[in-house]
Each structure stands twice: as C-alpha cells, then as structure tokens.
C-alpha cells in the first residue's frame, strides 16, 4: 500500500491528464509494478472471462469512488476520511454485487465472495487516499480510468494464460487441438501464484534491460 502513496507525492510537476491515464496502464501498473490488490488478481483469474468481469467490476468501483471522493474532498474532515472512503466504496460495491447478480447468476456464482471483497481491495483505497482526495474531478477520472484499465489488463494477462494452459481454451473457445494435455495445476491455486510470479519476472526482465541501455 505504501508504494502507491509515496509514488504520488511527486505530483508537483503537474502532469497532464493524459499522463495520469497512461501511468496507470504501464509505468505504475497497479498489479505488475505496485503489487496492489493481489487477492482478487490471484483468486478469480482462473479463466479469462472471470478475470475480465472481475477487472471491469473493480474498475467501475474505482471510477465511481474516485469521482465521489474527488467531488467531496473539501467536505470530508481529515480525521474520518478513511472511514468515509470505505463507506463510499462499500456503497458502490453493493451496487455492483447486485448488478452482476441481475446480469448473470452463473458469473456471480463463479466470482463468489470476491465481488464483495472489492471493498477491501487496497488499490481502490490507495487511489482514493493518494490521488482523488488531493485532485480535481477531471484528473481523478483519468487516474481511475488508467488504473482501472491497468488492473483489467493485468487480470486479463493472468486469466488468459491460466485458462489457455489449464483448460486449453480462451473465453470457452477451444484453442489447442484435442491431443493437448491440460496443465491442471494452472487452474489450481498454485497456478495463480506461479503465473503472477512469471509475469513479474517478465516485467523485471524488461526493466533491467532498459536500465542497462
């Protein structure tokens, strides 16, 4: 959680809104760089579809809470700000929870308690605390969109790999020929840890390559 907060203190040189958007996608990607909100990333990334749904739900809550926090930032007393942020987030999560239940009962069953657990996703609280409570609505929206899409992107990276190797499918469509031996381990919990570790390795590798040049 601390990385997200310290990184944003360097906002003095007032970057444009496009910068706010881009940084979440890549340079400060919430999952691969800041390592925030790990629980849902690992838990519901066993298929690409679950991962995408979870990512979008989180991005929506992030966007809405950032908007509300940014617009109320001058009215929320400093002492109770964290509690107020959590209340705001919890409200939107409840909305998302019921919305998903209305859209698809199967999806709701697959994601299970993890929709409710978006409340305690440190990514959302850290954006509210580190960004939305200090910036205007426009910038907060861009920040939320960038971070949200970065989160969706990361979840999709994991979900696609795990579904492809663990099930031989992508979005339930057969990709590999029938003779493909599925790597069951990839859909099991251990596979989540391994896949994320490998993605982080890849990111580290690119970073060290860049540093050498």
């Amino acid at each position: 959680m601390s990385t997200g907060i310290t990184k944003n203190t360097e906002l003095k040189n007032t970057p444009s809104s496009t910068d706010e958007f881009i940084k979440g996608l890549w340079r400060e990607n919430p999952v691969f760089v800041q390592v925030l909100g790990m629980c849902p990333v690992l838990a519901v990334s066993n298929t690409a579809q679950n991962a995408l749904a979870m990512g979008l739900a989180t991005a929506f809550v992030l966007l809405m809470s950032n908007i509300l926090v940014a617009s109320l930032r001058n009215f929320i007393p400093k002492q109770v700000r964290i509690a107020s942020f959590i209340l705001i987030i919890a409200t939107f999560v409840t909305i998302v929870d019921y919305a998903i239940q209305a859209i698809s009962v199967d999806l709701h069953k697959n994601l299970g308690a993890f929709i409710s657990l978006i409340v305690v996703n440190c990514l959302i609280l850290s954006r509210a605390e580190a960004f939305a409570s200090k910036n205007n609505i426009g910038k907060s929206i861009m920040d939320a969109l960038g971070m949200g899409l970065g989160f969706v992107f990361a979840l999709f990276c994991l979900g696609a790999v795990r579904e492809l190797l663990g099930n031989g499918t992508l979005f339930n469509i057969e990709v590999f020929p029938g003779s493909f031996q599925e790597w069951i381990i990839m859909i099991l919990p251990a596979g989540g840890f391994f896949t994320l570790a490998l993605w982080l390795l890849l990111f580290n590798f690119f970073k060290s390559k860049k540093a050498q040049v």
């Binding site: 390592v35 381990i185 099991l188 919990p189 251990a190 596979g191 989540g192 840890f193 391994f194 994320l196 570790a197 490998l198 982080l200 390795l201 580290n204 590798f205 060290s208």
Partner: peptide
C-alpha cells in the same frame, strides 16, 4: 531479476502445492 516479489510468489506457489 527474480529477487523481490517474484521470488516470494514462486515460494508461495510451492507452499500452496
């Protein structure tokens, strides 16, 4: 390259197994 979170996650995967 492996140092840090990546290593911890690999160990966690083995523990999970």
């Amino acid at each position: 390259v492996v140092k840090g979170t990546a290593l911890t996650l690999l160990v966690a995967g083995i523990l999970s197994l």
